[in-house]
């Protein structure tokens, strides 16, 4: 077992959690890409198509698309389907506002290429630190049940 991976970034919305990472190489537009009634990615061309974001540490490069997307994050949280934390390379206003109103811990300026879907990670968005507690070498995407 190699050294533990510790990544640093900028804390944007405060909070702490430990959960499984769900990592995408593609931007996410919460309006249109995510179904607020079940938390699944519904954009067919997305690399997380069919996967549920609930209780994951959701890692993706950045948001895009309509500012209505912020409200989708709120609805996900209200329905108990929100990610546990959001990790971006670059924060954009849609995701920042969404994380604020849904109260989801959020960080940016993180090298998410170091993270893999299925890794158990500890996010400390107060300090801007992510620790990989348990690494998963190759993981199939866990589907929503």
């Amino acid at each position: 077992m190699g050294a533990q991976i510790v990544l640093r970034g900028r804390g944007i919305v405060e909070g702490k959690c430990t959960a499984e990472a769900l990592v995408s190489t593609k931007p996410i537009s919460f309006l249109g890409d995510v179904d607020p009634s079940n938390g699944k990615i519904i954009e067919k061309h997305h690399d997380l198509y069919g996967v549920c974001v609930k209780d994951k540490v959701l890692c993706f490069p950045h948001g895009h698309g309509s500012t209505v997307g912020s409200y989708v994050l709120y609805s996900l949280a209200k329905n108990g389907l929100a990610p546990k934390a959001i990790i971006n390379r670059w924060a954009d206003p849609v995701i920042v506002v969404g994380a604020v109103i849904a109260n989801i811990p959020m960080m940016d300026q993180v090298d998410i290429s170091q993270l893999r879907t299925g890794d158990l990670v500890e996010v400390d968005a107060y300090k801007g630190v992510i620790k990989v507690l348990k690494s998963r070498k190759r993981g199939g995407l866990s589907k929503c049940i």
Binding site: L31, S66, V68, Y71, Y74, S75
Partner: peptide, 16 residues
């Protein structure tokens, strides 16, 4: 902005 139900859809209603 974001007042027309056509462009907004259902997502914002909860928060608003």
């Amino acid at each position: 902005s974001g007042v027309s139900y056509k462009t907004l859809g259902d997502a914002p209603t909860d928060f608003l």
